[in-house]
Design a protein around this nucleic acid. Structure first.
Lengths: 214, 214
DNA sequence: GTCTATACGGTGATAGAC
DNA sequence: GTCTATCACCGTATAGAC
C-alpha cells in the first residue's frame, strides 16, 4: 500500500503545534528576544523536538517570517478582486481588510517591521519569494485618477499613506493608549471605530464626488 | 583650590563617547540584539569601561531609551510655541519638525516602537518620568475646530494620523523602498518631498478654507 | 519520534594589574 | 581610569538511550 510519506498521523499535528507556538513567541519577542525553550513550553513539548523538526532556530524563524509576511501584504491585493468601478468601495475594502486582519493579529506589523529593519538586505529575496506585486492596486488608483474620482497624486504615496493610517494605530498601541487615552476604554472605542474613521479621513483627502463636480 | 569633581578633562568625553556609541547600536539592533562588545568597538574603547561607567547593559540601555523617547515626542509640542492662529501653520510646523528630525534619526521610530512593544508595562513610568503631556496640541486642534478651520473629529485621532503619516514611511522604509520603488532613487525623491506631500494630504482632509465657506 | 544529558560557543559582568 | 584575563551563566544544538 502506497500511503503518503506520513506514517504517523501525529506528525503534521506536532509540526503545526511548533509552528503555532513559534509564531506567538517570535511575534512578541522578535528573533533576538525569542528563546527555543519558550517556544517548546508554548507548544507543550521538549526543546529537542524543535531541532528535530526544523534543524535550527534560524530555519524555524524563516518559515514563520515568510508566512507572516504573506499575511501582512496581500490583504491589499486580494481585496482588489472586488468591484473596481467605485474607488471608494476599493478603499473601504482595503481599510476593512487591514483593520479586521489586525484585530486578530495585532503583533504582526511590529514583527514584520522590526525584523525587516533588523535585516534590510534580505527584503529583496523575501519579496521575490513571495511573488507579491503591488501592480493591481496601482493600476486601480491610476484609473480612478484618470476617471476624475481621485485627486491626482503619486499612487505609490497614496498606498503608503493608506497602509500607514491603518497600521500605525496598532503599531504604536502601547504608546498611544498611555499617552493619549490614559485608560484603555476610550482607546478600545477608537480601535473599534477606526474602519470608519480612517476611511473618512482618506476619502475627505483624495476622493472627488463625481456627482457634484466643482 | 576647589575644582569640580572632574580631575580629568577626558572623563565627560569618554562617557559621551559611550552614550553616542550605545545610541547607534541600540537603535539599529534593539536591546536583545545589541552586544556590549559592539558598543565598545563603536566607541573605540574596552568593553570593561562600559561597565565601569554604567554598571550594566540594562542601565546603559535605560539612559539611551529615555533620551530617545524625549526626542521622539516633544517635536510636536515644541512646535506649538509658534503662532497658533492659523492651524495650517501649526500642522505645517509639526510635519516639518518630524520629517526633519527623522532625516537625522531614521532609526528612532523603529527603536521606540519596538522597545515599547517589547515592554509595554514600562510605558506608563516612562511617560511619567518624561513629563510630556499632549495637552497643548489637543487644545490647539480643538480651538481650530471651534473656529471652523478644522473638520470636527476626535483630536486624539487626528494626532495619531498626523504622526503616523510622518513616521510610517520611515518605519517601513526597507519594505516600501523594495516593494514600491525597486530602485532607491525614486524613493529618495519621495522622502525628500514628503513634507509637502504629507502636509497636502492632511490639509485636504481636515482643513477648511475659511475665506470661501460652503 | 521523544526524551535526558551534555557539549559548545558566546555574552554580561567582575577581578586585579598597571 | 584603563587594560587583560577570567568567571559564571545562558542558549543553541547535538548525542544517545528508549
Amino acid at each position: 500500500m502506497d500511503y503518503p510519506q506520513k506514517t504517523n498521523s501525529q506528525d503534521f499535528s506536532q509540526e503545526q503545534l511548533i509552528l503555532d507556538a513559534a509564531m506567538k513567541v517570535f511575534m512578541r519577542k522578535g528573533y533576538d528576544g525569542a528563546r527555543m525553550q519558550e517556544i517548546a513550553d508554548e507548544a507543550g513539548m521538549n526543546k529537542a523536538l524543535l531541532h528535530y523538526y526544523f534543524r535550527s532556530k534560524e530555519q524555524l524563524f524563516q518559515k514563520i517570517f515568510k508566512e507572516s509576511f504573506r499575511k501582512f501584504w496581500p490583504t491589499i491585493e486580494l481585496t482588489l478582486t472586488i468591484d473596481n468601478s467605485d474607488i471608494r468601495k476599493v478603499i473601504r475594502a482595503i481599510v476593512d481588510g487591514y483593520v479586521t486582519m489586525l484585530e486578530t493579529m495585532p503583533y504582526l506589523p511590529n514583527f514584520i517591521i522590526g525584523e525587516i529593519n533588523r535585516n534590510p538586505g534580505k527584503v529583496a529575496d523575501l519579496i521575490k519569494d513571495s511573488g507579491i506585486k503591488p501592480q493591481a492596486i496601482i493600476t486601480a488608483l491610476t484609473q480612478a485618477m484618470n476617471r476624475g474620482e481621485l485627486v491626482r497624486m503619486n499612487p505609490h504615496e497614496l498606498i503608503i499613506y493608506l497602509i500607514g493610517l491603518c497600521v500605525f494605530p496598532v503599531l504604536a498601541r502601547p504608546l498611544i493608549g498611555q499617552m493619549l487615552y490614559e485608560n484603555n476604554e476610550a482607546y478600545q472605542q477608537f480601535l473599534a471605530n477606526r474602519c470608519e474613521s480612517v476611511y473618512d479621513f482618506i476619502c475627505r483627502s483624495v476622493c472627488i464626488d463625481t456627482n457634484n463636480p466643482g
